[in-house]
């Protein structure tokens, strides 16, 4: 359909990350659903401590890309490297154990458990997971980890509330808290502000900025404005191909991106 894929300006060095080891790298990543190429030959990189975003109009392949990274989908071809290790096609539990965590576009929590139980089960996945003898609340290190995750998403005072009784914005943040509790090195956020009010969006962006201090973060976002001030680097996907890649300023100036976003 649309024209040829052009890998626009790959900005050198990106400032602050001197080491610039790619935490995540995809090589010619391709996913086909029948005849439709949801992703075709995507080469993409996230460097350590970077905050990157993938944006694009609906149907650009953003969620497909995420599903590949987190083992929900197996790519048709291409490779995914995490810390230099090939993780292509591994099941999502293994990928989680290696250090990639994700939050979901559609809230995906355990509604009948309390907020604390939601994050504790995530924290517990790294230690004592097969213990059958002790009470689940008897592990100080798990409790601390769970509390830290709740604290960083601002839900510590709601720890004992059922997740189902939290507001939409709080559930979205709990979603991030669950991901954080697994102590990831790379956190993937799938439209973290979807369905939020302006005030909630603002709070969540603050939250992401806070946790970004010691994490590498990859955000998928539909709304360009949300990621502009947050990210070091933005990649634009369009019909499964990379349309442009660069700093927020470069992306804003890019004529192809403007065209795509104005059209939709």
């Amino acid at each position: 359909m649309s024209g040829e894929a052009v890998n626009d300006v790959r900005s050198p060095a990106n400032g602050r990350t001197a080491a610039s080891v790619p935490v995540l790298k995809t090589e010619l990543l391709t996913v086909r659903f029948g005849g439709l190429a949801a992703l075709s030959k995507v080469n993409f990189e996230v460097k350590r401590d970077e905050v990157c975003a993938i944006i694009g109009p609906n149907g650009a392949g953003k969620s497909t890309f995420f599903n590949c990274l987190t083992g929900v989908l197996k790519p048709t071809s291409g490779r995914i490297l995490f810390d230099g290790e090939d993780i292509t096609g591994l099941p999502s539990n293994t990928i989680s154990q290696k250090g990639i965590a994700r939050s979901y576009q559609i809230t995906n929590i355990m509604p009948n458990a309390s907020a604390l139980e939601n994050v504790r089960i995530a924290a517990q996945s790294r230690r004592h997971a097969w213990n059958m003898i002790s009470h689940h609340s008897a592990f100080p290190n798990i409790n601390e980890r769970a509390e830290a995750a709740l604290r960083s998403v601002g839900l510590l005072d709601k720890a004992d509330q059922l997740a189902a009784n939290l507001s939409h914005g709080e559930q979205r943040n709990l979603e991030i808290g669950i991901a954080l509790a697994t102590e990831p090195t790379l956190l993937c956020l799938d439209e973290p502000t979807a369905g939020m009010s302006t005030a909630e969006t603002h709070d969540t962006l603050q939250l992401v900025r806070r946790i970004a201090k010691n994490l590498t973060i990859l955000i998928v976002e539909h709304d360009m404005q949300v990621v502009m001030e947050l990210c070091h680097r933005i990649t634009v996907l369009h019909y499964g191909e990379i349309l442009a890649d660069g700093t927020p300023e470069e992306i804003q100036r890019n004529s192809k991106v403007q065209e795509v976003y104005l059209k939709t």
Binding site: T70, V72, P91, S92, N93, S96, Q97, A101, R102, Y104, N108, I109, M110, P111, N112, A113, E117, R120, I121, A122, Q124, S125, R126, H128, A129, W130, N131, M132, I133, S134, H135, H136, F139, I142, I178, A179, A181, T182
Partner: peptide, 22 residues
């Protein structure tokens, strides 16, 4: 126990339980 909590987590949300590493 932690093991029992994993089972209940599977009941509540199997895909998410897998996604957090189980």
């Amino acid at each position: 126990s932690p093991f029992g909590m994993v089972l209940q987590s599977i009941r509540e949300n199997e895909a998410r339980t897998r996604a957090i590493g189980y």
